[in-house]
């Protein structure tokens, strides 16, 4: 390889260049090392100890935090809730995002403005979104009940958050409102990279719109799809703001991250929360890894 020959011909690093590079990267190393990597290592180590500001001493307790997590019914409920959030959010964001991306890709006039409107929810503070939607969901004065009653779809106002399934769905919907733009943009970028000639070729071969979507579009945007799927999974796994504002510490809508926050900062069981946050991180990494691998493999066979 030519690169290797060049490297062999001159010294591995030129002093001035290397010094400048290190100087430019030093702030990154200090900040990321001190505020992300060191705490991450501490999280792993401390999860095997009992770190508890209300109790003296920090004894080694092995896997006690992890075994306690397995039997904690609150933790189990929060895992179930997070699982529900992830499944619903990923399905809705992918379906809606793909629809929005296809629409945006097929529009000529006013596309910039429609794109701006589509991106808008992603840009707003999630807390404000949650408050706005909480008012929409309000049982007595909310516009959702008003609208459903005037459309004749509902006889009497409903208290939406009385039912766990409905509550989980409505929190998911707010999250989807915020995150769907990201999926739409990722898929729009993928759609724009599909060569136009391929559609014309498919048309000449007699393929209808649906068939050319399945045989041309889908395989070619699979890379973007994998990224969009893993993004939406990771974000849904880490759902906190919407559920905290709308459901507080209630068990019906409590996500794993809310459970981490409560364990650490309300019940003051630091290492217990750390163990749970590690499990949540590992779970979300594994799930998004599966998407990327599967989508790539399946489309390669096509």
């Amino acid at each position: 390889m030519t690169a290797q020959r060049i490297l062999a011909a001159r010294p591995a690093y030129q002093f001035g260049e290397a010094a400048m590079g290190l100087a430019f990267v030093l702030p990154i190393v200090v900040i990321m090392g001190g505020l992300v990597f060191m705490p991450l290592v501490t999280t792993v180590i401390d999860s095997f100890y009992r770190v508890d500001p209300m109790r003296a001493g920090e004894p080694f307790i092995g896997l006690r935090n992890y075994t306690d997590l397995m039997t904690d019914s609150n933790v189990q409920a929060s895992w179930m809730n997070t699982f529900a959030y992830v499944v619903m959010a990923v399905v809705l964001e992918t379906a809606g995002g793909l629809g929005a991306a296809l629409l945006l890709n097929n529009i000529r006039r006013g596309r910039q403005w429609l794109l701006a409107a589509t991106v808008l929810p992603w840009c707003l503070p999630p807390v404000v979104n949650a408050i706005v939607w909480m008012w929409i969901y309000n049982p007595s004065y909310g516009v959702l009940n008003h609208a459903l009653i005037s459309l004749g779809l509902l006889d009497a106002p409903r208290v939406w958050f009385n039912d766990r399934g409905t509550a989980l769905f409505l929190v998911t919907l707010v999250h989807v409102w915020r995150m769907m733009p990201l999926t739409a943009i990722i898929l729009l970028a993928a759609l724009q990279s599909v060569p136009k000639e391929l559609y014309e070729a498919a048309k000449l071969d007699g393929a209808g719109a649906l068939k050319s979507f399945r045989l041309v579009t889908l395989p070619l945007i699979s890379g973007g799809l994998a990224i969009a799927l893993s993004q939406s999974t990771v974000f849904a796994f880490n759902l906190f703001d919407e559920a905290w504002i709308m459901g507080g510490s209630g068990l019906d809508t409590r996500s794993v991250i809310i459970q981490v926050y409560m364990s650490a900062f309300q019940n003051l069981r630091f290492s217990y929360g750390m163990a749970l946050s590690l499990l949540a991180m590992i779970a979300s990494l594994i799930v998004s890894m599966i998407y990327v691998l599967r989508v790539y493999r399946e489309t390669r066979l096509d």
Binding site: Q14, V25, F37, F270, M274, S277, A280, M281
Partner: peptide
């Protein structure tokens, strides 16, 4: 070109996959 360039870059970008909440307690 400087020593450790690729390692530092990969490590830093990898943290995008780590939710901020994971390191919040320490």
């Amino acid at each position: 070109r400087f020593p450790g360039r690729n390692l530092v870059f990969v490590l830093v970008v990898a943290t995008m996959a780590i939710p901020a909440y994971t390191v919040m307690i320490p």
